[in-house]
Amino acid sequence: MFDYNFHWRPVMKSLPDLIEAGFLTLQVAALAMLFGIVIGLGLALIRLHLRGPLYWFATAWVELARNTPALFQLFFFGFGLGAFGLHLMPYSIVLAGLSFNCAGYLAENFRGGFQAIPDTQIRAARSLGMSAVQAYVRIVIPQVLRVVYHPMTNQMVWAVLMSSLGMLVGFRELSGETQFFASRTFRIFEYFAVTAVIYYVIVKVILGASRLLATRLFRY
């Protein structure tokens, strides 16, 4: 009834390639987070302080990023733009798609973070003679960072896992690379099992590093 013979040797032979692809996964996820943080911060501030076209633009971004499948967002940057004659490299498609998605989620985290800091903190800072910018940079943002720190860590993990969608647009990150080897050797189960372990290790390393950094950053 169960006559599947495991063959791990081919997987082990391509392990260095898989690990290399793992670093590519980490790289694209980290870059997407970086763009996501910068854009997300901008979207959050727009949604908190502005009205009019910019507000609607930011709101549409957040709504689309959060309420449509991430895969479709990737497809938009791949096949969607392709239909208009704009052909991106697989790497760029994944980076753009993930950044779009991360920015949308992070924007809402940041918005909540800003709302969690009472106005009286700004008043106290201003009463000491600080400018509005100084009050924001020295008093508000460090406190927001703490509020959004753990949601941001979650988003980073999510970005790593979500990057596996890259294989569907021809990107040979960890999942794409695994798919490539698996289809050549037909050791599909073995390849994806090992890759799952690699993903697991990547995520655990991120969580551990995040925890370590948190003890350094937040002593209060």
């Binding site: 008043r123 106290a124 201003r126 009463s127 000491l128 600080m130 008093i139 406190q143």
Partner: peptide
């Protein structure tokens, strides 16, 4: 901003800056 340096203010809800030590609160 310049004028407020002449006018110290203390609030009902004290409003200490939670992310800074006592020394940093005062030195900032």
């Amino acid at each position: 901003n310049k004028l407020r340096q002449r006018l110290g203010m203390v609030f009902q809800q004290w409003n200490s800056f939670p992310h800074l030590t006592a020394l940093e609160n005062v030195a900032l």
